[in-house]
Each structure stands twice: as structure tokens, then as C-alpha cells.
Design a protein around this nucleic acid. Structure first.
Lengths: 244, 244
DNA sequence: AGGCGTCGGTCCACAAGTCGACACTCCGCG
DNA sequence: CGCGGAGTGTCGACTTGTGGACCGACGCCT
């Protein structure tokens, strides 16, 4: 429960570019939180009380409960380019998706009510965050289309790439079963895909750990969805989207 | 190019419940447009100049271009419960998805800049539309998860149901090839699914036309995604989501 | 009436993905 | 040390979905 210094804002791309006056509006309400993988930021159905800004290599995800298969399918990854919580949904609306930490690290946290109050005072703040909303929606649009038309192999590659650009690293703690659930597909098939990638030298795996060796090869195996989204972030948020 | 009367606002659920003062803010800028299927409301990459409110049985969709297959995959259907354009993305941002009319009918149209100006004056308006944004995001979340984990048969049923609740009718003009493209799947397989549905008496088809005969059976064939979304619209927008 | 383009039905070979079963192995724990 | 649980590898039978090809036939146009 530490109050962040001005430089802590630099860890998140949305906060880093704020004007001084807007930063001063938010800063007193911000709290630093260092979180572990699997920590829950918001639960589907519960009110969105907090808004979270991943910093540095921290990363979280949104996932949606699927009745029939009894699993949580991932619909978006969010790193230091974005935020989780009351950015789109104002006020204390119930969250539709669950959000949990995928890569441990530092988050800045603010009460959604405080964020709302600040947005009430600053048009710039409103516009800036609503630009991000637009990007988030675009990201999920692309995911929906991707899930409808691309193979599991392509989507696996896409996931690894997305995680890399966000964390800046090439190693992720995650079991193959978790990955399968995120993608909404069967575990054994993911194992087959992973073996293929490994045999081709693209990745290495240990128990519960993935390591990317050859990014270029991974890009070739992936679909064009990654680039499409990066481009939209670029034009809407002026290139603050993390590139490699 | 007709100026709408107060009662025209009743055709769209988002506009119908506006307070008088907010309606008066928007009304002078609203224009009635009667559109045909396939008319384009916004094109991916072009600025979102207009915002559209489907009225009555009118319906439009968002679709995303998929490089590899060279097709436009549908990611959301919007009827009288919602809006298309500068609702999420403020200002003149480039549209990420293309939107076109799926069911002919009446739309109310407003310049996004005029809408922005009105939102600047009215907190209620801002909050109301941002509630809808949240619902739209939820809808696409669900679609993304659905596309990842449900069969084409289920998704076909879901599409027909979604279209029914929006238009209030049970007949749709659409070729099987169009349906296949929307779902992002092969045409021949859709034909097989359609035949199955038809043989079971759930639907009837003519050249370019679908007719739903047995809604209950269709619901059983569909996945739970439809209900999940309806519930969220219910709680966030207080039950204005069109039910049957 | 004839002509023609689009749409729909069908078949087939094949690829993608599922699901259950089972064995193995790593690793933490008592 | 041995136990046990979670994570992984693998197999095989099966279902789902693809993509090409081809034909028929519906319906619009002149």
C-alpha cells in the first residue's frame, strides 16, 4: 500500500503520456500493488470497484466463462499498453469478464469512483481513456474474428507473440493445460502443436514453462491478427502500443 | 432527409428512455434514413463521422476483414437495442470494423461531432452511452469465447436467434454463402447444418431466405451465449434489451 | 419463352480438432 | 526414501469442418 512517485506512472503507457495536471488528479488516489500470477483483478458479476494499470512486464487477461465446457476462455491480454476495470464501463457496473494476472509484476490501482471523479473534471482524460476503450474493443473484435477462422496452431503462435510484446520477455510460466483452456480447445491437441513448434526449434518447454527461441518463425506461424491490432493501436494511440 | 418527431425516438431503445432535455439536445441534429440491406454505415479505416441508431426491425452488423481467407467475419449484430459509430470511439477515430445493414429499415443518424457536443453538456448522456459501450464490449467478449469453443451448428442457431430477437420477425433474406462468411466457415458445411435443421422442422429455406418455424428447438440447438448476453444487457441497461 | 447468373445440394478426399485412456515423469512433501 | 499429485506425451477412434468440383435448378431479365 505505497503511494506512487511520478516515475511510477512511466511504467504504464496510458499513464506515461498524461499531462501533469491530469497526473496530479489521479496520483493521490493511486496505489502500488505487486501481484502474483493468478491473482484476480475482477470477478465476473461483481462490481468494478478498482481499475488497474499493468506496469513494466506485468500482464493480465480477460476471460469469459463458458457454460458448456465449464472453462474460462481468454478474450483479451492486457499489458502496460492498457488498463483493466472501469475504463470502458463507467461507475460500478458488474464486470462481465473475469480478469486475472498472467505475468506477475507491478500494477497501479485506483478506485473506479476516484477515476470517474477525475474524468468528470478533465475532458482530456475522458477522451484519452475513451480512445483506449476503442482500441480494446478493436482488439476483441479481432479476437472474435480470429477465433472464428484461424487454426489452433496459428492462435497458439499469436498468443505467445502477444505475451512477448507485452512482457518484453521470452519466457512464460504456464502449463499446457492452462494454455488450452485460454484458447478454448482440447489439451491433447495443444500438446501436439507445442511438440511441433519444439521440434522445429521455435520454442523450448519445461514443465510449466514456455521459452520462445525464434520470434521470426513464430510470426510466420501466426495469423495476421497481431499486426492488424498493433496498427490500430498505433493510429489511435499514436504509437504507444508496445512494439517488441 | 427528414427531421424526426419525438415519437421516432421510441423506435430505438437507447433513445427511447432519454430524458426530455437530452432528447432535445440530440433531436435537432438527428436525421431519418431508410436503408436497404447491404448499405454501408461505416467502413474499416475511415473516420467515424456518423452514428446510427437502428429503429424497429432494422438491424446492422460489425464485421472484421480477415486477411488469410479474404472474407469479412461478423463480430456483432446490432438492432434497436443499440447503436453503431461514435458511441465507444469518441471523436473522429478511424473505424476498425465495417458495419453494414443486415435487415432493411429505419435508422436515426447523427453526426458524431454533434453527439460529442451533446455528451459534453450532459453527464447523464455520457453515462448512458458508456453503459451501452460496456454492453457492446460484453457482447463481443461473448462472441470471441463462443467462436473459440462452440460448433458451427450451435453458432448458426445462435445467429438466427439473435436476428429474431432484434428484428422481431422470423424471416431473413440471406444466402447460405453470406451466412457462411459471417460465421467465418465453409459454405458446404453450413449447407449441411441447414439441411439438418430443415429436416428436423426447425427452419424452412427458400433461395436466399430463411424462415424460423420452431424457436424452442432452435434455442435448444444454440449455445448459452445468447442468454448470457441478454442477462448482462438486462442488468446494465435495466431490461431494455429486446426480448423475443 | 429462352437465357443466364447466382444459389443451393451433394459427393469426396482430406485436414483439423475432440475425447478418453493410460503411462510416464517431474517435483514437492512427509 | 517413497508417495502422490500434477503436468506431459502418446495413441487411436471418432467427429467436425475444409475445399474443390460439379450439377441442377430457381428466378430474374429481356
Amino acid at each position: 500500500m505505497t503511494v506512487p512517485a511520478a516515475e511510477d506512472f512511466l511504467g504504464n503507457a496510458l499513464l506515461a503520456v498524461l499531462r501533469d495536471e491530469d497526473r496530479r488528479r489521479l496520483a493521490p488516489h493511486m496505489v502500488i500493488a505487486d501481484l502474483e500470477a493468478k491473482d484476480v483483478l475482477q470477478k465476473a458479476g461483481e462490481d468494478v470497484v478498482q481499475t488497474w494499470f499493468p506496469c513494466g512486464a506485468a500482464m493480465a487477461s480477460f476471460s469469459v466463462w463458458v457454460e458448456e465446457s465449464g472453462s474460462n476462455v481468454e478474450v483479451a491480454l492486457v499489458g502496460r499498453e492498457g488498463a483493466i476495470g472501469g475504463i470502458v464501463s463507467n461507475g460500478r457496473l458488474p464486470a462481465f469478464a473475469t480478469s486475472q494476472v498472467r505475468a506477475a509484476g507491478r500494477f497501479l490501482r485506483i478506485k473506479t469512483s476516484a477515476l470517474e471523479a477525475a474524468k468528470l473534471e478533465s475532458i482530456a482524460l475522458r477522451h484519452w481513456f475513451s480512445r483506449y476503450s476503442d482500441c480494446m474493443l478493436a482488439q476483441v473484435f479481432q479476437t472474435a474474428a480470429c477465433n472464428a477462422s484461424h487454426t489452433i496452431s496459428q492462435r497458439t503462435a499469436k498468443w505467445l507473440l502477444a505475451a512477448m510484446t507485452r512482457t518484453g520477455g521470452s519466457e512464460f510460466q504456464m502449463t499446457q493445460e492452462q494454455l488450452a483452456e485460454m484458447l478454448g480447445v482440447g489439451r491433447t491437441f495443444v500438446t501436439r502443436v507445442v511438440r511441433q513448434f519444439r521440434e522445429q526449434g521455435v520454442i523450448e518447454t519445461r514443465r510449466g514453462v514456455f521459452t520462445v527461441n525464434d520470434v521470426t518463425a513464430l510470426r510466420k506461424k501466426s495469423c495476421s491478427c497481431t499486426t492488424a491490432i498493433e496498427d490500430h493501436f498505433d493510429t489511435v494511440l499514436h504509437g504507444i502500443y508496445p512494439v517488441e
